[in-house]
Design a protein around this nucleic acid. Structure first.
Lengths: 340, 340
DNA sequence: GTGGGGTGTGAGAGCGCTCTCACGGGTTCG
DNA sequence: CGAACCCGTGAGAGCGCTCTCACACCCCAC
């Protein structure tokens, strides 16, 4: 695809210039030890002189590997990008894969059409494996990818309970801890802003909240529950709704930090002090949690560990040394700051 | 890369099952008109039966096309993701490319190491072309990609003034309009929160601000200028700094909407009314501009048009029908809401 | 001096696809 | 009734690489 210009040099041209065979050049390129120093040197200088770059298509055709991994974001609103949790994950993932000399590409699949397109693209063999993130209930991709036998690992357990490798935080336990913490501090009217209830993280954190209430001997009341969408604006909106419905609430467990920041703002605007009038606990331990006002008590997920595990599970499949799907559930940790 | 399982079927197997030659199957796959209906039908059913998916590597090896375009984000802080302007662009870009049956992949290059890695990956022939976004002064990628002859289009004009296809908003003119608008409203102490001054959008909008002051016969004073980083938190921080240094300011031009939202918050916290005490104008017309309090007067960029143009310029290069680098500078438009 | 074991190298067979080219068989025209 | 033409098809070359295999060569033990 070079515009106006000689096409790129090939292995043969390098071989000819270096005065060796194609095979030897290939050995040098692939760091095989069985090459004499002289030959190696000759090849290296020929490569430099011709500015030779191996053609990945040709290489992949025979090796059946592309050395690239896809991170697929299956999310209908473009808000995922905006979530700092996601941004951190991309960074980690890309760093971990770099260690093994693999590239990371992101694919966004916002609607069914794009999901199908992404599924097809993956099945055509563009990537060695897929990390799938942000799953809603009606997502096509887990099914498509699973049945196409592409190495696959999910972030978060699959909504349909199918048997596929995944890494998850113990969302329910984390939410329970948060709720119990609020109860132990003497709060009695503990509300929650949940995540989207068609996402597993939303469901699990909500379940953990209920469990926490129960453990503390507190009743579950519908007016203390409002569904959010994991965004700051959504958190503010949900908080306003809660305040209107239940002005006597004295604590709120918010299922993500961006939403919690929104909730803090809504509380502030409503003239409530935090944690005086209302204690707030978030989820994720995003960067913003430490810098907002007041600093947010929140449930931390071991994101780095989770990312490391995902890469591990995935590469084990890619390398063909995996025996069956593997699952890791990581512990969460309550980070106590000023908001509760 | 299928784990434990028969490898995928090939063209030959389809041909055999359909009772035709490889060439005919290829014709059917590629929608050539010169195939009899019977043959076409036979091939289609064989494809369905074998669940055949063409191997892209093999195809690309001969066609020299991959039908995928990369969007490269060259940005050292992971904040780009967080910017709604960016999220909108990804959506648009991916939609426009879908129209031509091309896939979009995102590559993040945060540091020099990753930039080199991305450059290499691109040069190996994984993609047909590159859209490059968010350029800082010390970026390696424009150079690397330009000299590797990969079809390339930049969002925003290149910092080093080199001759490469790009699409940009008229940032300077937009900033001038905003500043003049504030001056025309009788504001005399007009501050600015700039973008990062190693990014062209930051530089140009700052230049436009200065030009606007000059046109209005207002002096440029250093205490009214604070550099931001295009994030909400950065905007709030910069606004606080400005208020401290110049408590008498009566307007502020903020070089991006997320920063403007932060500035609004800082102003609110400082007890200033908007637009009563301080008029605020943002830049980008992000979604949040319409929903924040008060709704933000802002400079809109024609993002959809810009994206369309980028795709157009890029595909013209990919298809080899481009004659030299092409440049488009798009007009901005002041959207007046309540904040100024 | 012969056999065995490295070690560096090259020839050559593919990987799965596309695409040119030639060919048989029908139609149309002079 | 033969030449000219189109149309559907298949044979086969080749895209740029990897990798197996065989070979030439050297070194050392017996």
């Amino acid at each position: 695809m070079t515009i106006a210009g000689r096409s790129s040099p090939t292995l043969d041209e390098v071989a000819e210039l270096a005065g060796v065979s194609r095979a030897t050049v290939s050995r040098v390129i692939n760091d095989s030890p069985r090459v004499s120093p002289e030959a190696r040197e000759a090849v290296h200088s020929a490569v430099a002189q011709l500015r030779y770059v191996p053609n990945r298509m040709a290489r992949s055709l025979v090796t059946r590997r592309t050395d690239t991994i896809a991170l697929v974001l299956s999310e209908n609103n473009s808000q995922v990008f905006t979530d700092p949790f996601f941004a951190s994950m991309v960074r980690e993932l890309s760093a971990r894969l770099s260690d093994t000399d693999r590239a990371l590409v992101l694919l966004a699949a916002r609607d069914r059409g794009e999901q199908e397109k992404v599924g097809r693209w993956v099945r055509q063999g563009h990537v060695d494996g897929v990390v799938l993130v942000s799953l809603h209930r009606d997502d096509l991709l887990p099914g498509m990818l699973r049945e196409s036998n592409v190495p696959l690992v999910l972030l978060g357990r699959p909504l349909d309970g199918s048997d596929v490798s995944h890494v998850d935080a113990d969302n329910a336990a984390g939410a329970t801890t948060a709720t119990e913490y609020l109860a132990a501090a003497g709060r009695r009217r503990i509300a929650t802003v949940t995540g989207p209830l068609d996402m597993i993280a939303g469901v699990d954190r909500y379940a953990g909240y209920r469990h926490g209430l129960q453990a503390a001997g507190l009743p579950l009341s519908a007016e203390l529950v409002e569904e959010g969408d994991f965004t700051e604006a959504g958190g503010a909106r949900a908080m306003r709704a809660l305040l209107e419905r239940a002005p006597d609430l004295d604590a709120v467990f918010v299922a993500s930090d961006p939403m919690a920041v929104g909730a803090l703002r809504a509380l502030h605007d409503a003239g409530r002090t935090v944690p005086g009038d209302v204690a707030v606990v978030g989820f994720d331990d995003a960067v913003v949690a430490a810098t907002c006002d007041p600093p947010l008590t929140t449930v931390a997920q071991p994101l780095d560990e989770m990312t490391r595990l995902m890469v591990e599970l995935l590469l084990r499949q890619v390398d063909g040394v995996a025996d069956g799907p593997e699952v890791h559930v990581c512990d969460t940790r309550l980070v106590v700051r000023a908001s509760a």
